[in-house]
Nucleic acid binder design. Structure first.
Lengths: 151, 151
DNA sequence: ATATAATGTTAACTATGGTTAACAAATTTG
DNA sequence: CAAATTTGTTAACCATAGTTAACATTATAT
């Protein structure tokens, strides 16, 4: 598994692609509050892991593998963010920042249990998960919606 | 603020002192799954921060400042651990491991909100926080008990 | 009391992940 | 289209945090 730091870069690239249609070194550096050389390094590492395609001075594109991983990373981010925002009632911005950090330390199992718990609590309170990144509901919520329809 | 890594060393030292009455390099290395040279390095760093007293080949003792910080670190650890174990129902060992990692990324504010939330949930379910380190209830729970008596 | 075992330190090295300064390439614009 | 600006890369460097191998010190046991 790639490092937490590289996960952040990959996630940021995925989001930028959805938001801007392209992925620029400068934009990544701005989003992540780091310098451009750091981005260049991350690019090389992600390329070595076959998570992105890149030629020097060219365009960054996520591979299929990279996109799948980015989605998984975002899904984790989602549920932690929702927990902080909608269960603990942290202000949106703070929830965003902390979810970012917390999620990187949590195991898949814990994430799954947190997801179940969060959705249980949100059901109880008749609240909906209203986190909406890239015009998509969080993947856990989507599943929940599907299950509801099926029941 | 000292790094997360150093926080772990300090916490481990505090616990070892309570458990064994003394703090040995080898015991720290075993508890933390690292080598003795790593411990020696940590010792030097913690000494520079005035968190421990130490003379070469001597005994490690936490300063007052170090003890206070260790307690604070443990308190944070407590509440995250309890959340994972008693709210998410993770197995004890897993909760222990993950709490360890998660807590180091969380802000004081988030910790406090999590503490309030956990205790609310535990009250609702008539459960008690049964985390009992060093023959002491977690500090949040102690406060809760006191408050209950006062009411 | 001394040989042995256990404990702790030092030095040299590794990896990750960041930085600045200088430069190269590409893009914009007058 | 040439100059200026923006964008991206490279090289050299820093810090943290760990490692192994070798050595020093302290404690133990006969």
């Amino acid at each position: 598994m790639i490092s937490k730091s590289l996960q952040e870069y990959l996630k940021t690239m995925y989001i930028l692609k959805k938001q801007n249609g392209n992925i620029r070194v400068t934009d990544i550096a701005n989003k992540m509050n780091c310098t451009k050389p750091s981005v260049t390094k991350a690019i090389n590492n992600l390329k070595n892991e076959n998570l992105i395609n890149y030629e020097i001075y060219g365009t960054i594109e996520l591979t299929e593998q990279g996109e799948n991983l980015a989605k998984k990373i975002l899904e984790v981010y989602d549920i932690v963010y929702i927990f902080l925002k909608d269960v603990l009632n942290l202000p949106e911005q703070q929830a965003e920042q902390e979810a970012e950090k917390m999620k990187s330390t949590m195991s898949d199992d814990t994430i799954n249990k947190l997801a179940k718990y969060v959705h249980k609590v949100l059901d109880l309170n008749n609240l909906d998960c209203n986190y909406d990144i890239n015009q998509e509901k969080c993947r856990s919520c989507k599943k929940r919606t599907i299950n509801k329809k099926e029941n």
